[in-house]
């Protein structure tokens, strides 16, 4: 079944068509890559999918639901979670609290209970702690649960962002350059984690990445963006051997 179906998505900033007639269709359970040179419009595409920007044209469907024009909050509730290219953690909260903010809509007790710490507070907080620890373990962060998020090394901050996104229990996970700034060892570890997340949670994943080893290693299909437009899309091997794609990248460098 198709999980994400995007048709003719466009947005302009002034005269610049940052994303122009973007189409993509992702099946449930797929691990899909979005690549392209710097400034191609990849992050902007994510911002459109998550309601940070409203598209000038186009339709975004998640499953059967038309989510075009919804707010970021509603889109997250509908089932899309993301990470950010320039990490956006809650820096003065602890590692576990970052994940618990992600769990916010999965668990509930009243504001009165928040203020008075009634029995429902203790019960639900315990459940939230357990769920958050489960997620932290997936990323090997359980020992760092009480660190301030800003005190984590860079690579672990990226992992924490993924954990926080997963905590919202999404159907589709968008990762914006998850390996940026990681050394080859960390990148290798991350690849394994991403595949684990996909299998363990049955997650559909769309990721932006410049690291071609990672892309070739784990993505089944790719879409290549160039100057805001789709250059080509299809199975990873075919796309990566396409001379136009190579030219777009070399032309960039």
């Amino acid at each position: 079944m198709t999980l994400l179906d995007v048709k003719n998505l466009s947005i302009s900033f002034g005269g610049l068509r940052a994303v122009d007639d973007f189409n993509i269709s992702i099946e449930e359970g797929q691990l899909y890559g979005l690549i392209g040179p710097n400034g191609a419009g990849k992050t902007t595409a994510f911002n459109l999918l998550t309601g940070v920007y409203k598209p000038n044209e186009g339709i975004i469907k998640l499953g059967d639901k038309d989510i075009t024009g919804l707010s970021t909050i509603e889109i997250n509730k509908a089932g899309i979670a993301r990470t950010f290219q320039n990490i956006r953690l809650f820096k003065d909260l602890s590692v576990i609290d970052n994940v618990k903010v992600g769990l916010h809509n999965q668990f509930s007790y009243s504001t009165l209970s928040s203020v008075l710490h009634l029995p429902s507070y203790h019960k639900v907080e315990k459940e939230m702690d357990e769920k958050a620890m489960e997620l932290l373990k997936v990323f090997g962060l359980e020992e760092h649960r009480d660190y301030l998020a800003s005190n984590l090394p860079y690579g672990q901050q990226r992992k924490l962002e993924i954990a926080r996104a997963l905590a919202t229990n999404p159907k589709l996970l968008l990762l914006d350059e998850p390996a940026a700034g990681m050394n080859p060892n960390e990148t290798g570890e991350l690849m394994e984690t991403i595949q684990f997340v996909r299998e363990h949670f049955g997650m559909t994943i769309l990721l932006i990445e410049h690291d071609m080893k990672l892309v070739a290693g784990i993505c089944e299909e790719l879409t290549v963006l160039n100057f805001g437009r789709v250059l080509t899309q299809g199975p990873t091997k075919e796309v990566l051997s396409n001379p136009e794609v190579i030219k777009a990248y070399i032309g960039d460098e």
Binding site: I73, N76, R88, V101, S114, Y121, E125
Partner: peptide
């Protein structure tokens, strides 16, 4: 009231907005 609030689900939501509004919205915080 204030110390309990800070250390609760609502309080975490409030502090997440302080730390990063865009990220708060991205995880569905109103």
């Amino acid at each position: 009231i204030v110390q309990n609030l800070v250390n609760s689900r609502d309080g975490r939501a409030i502090m997440s907005i302080r730390d990063n509004r865009i990220a708060s919205e991205s995880v569905g915080i109103n």
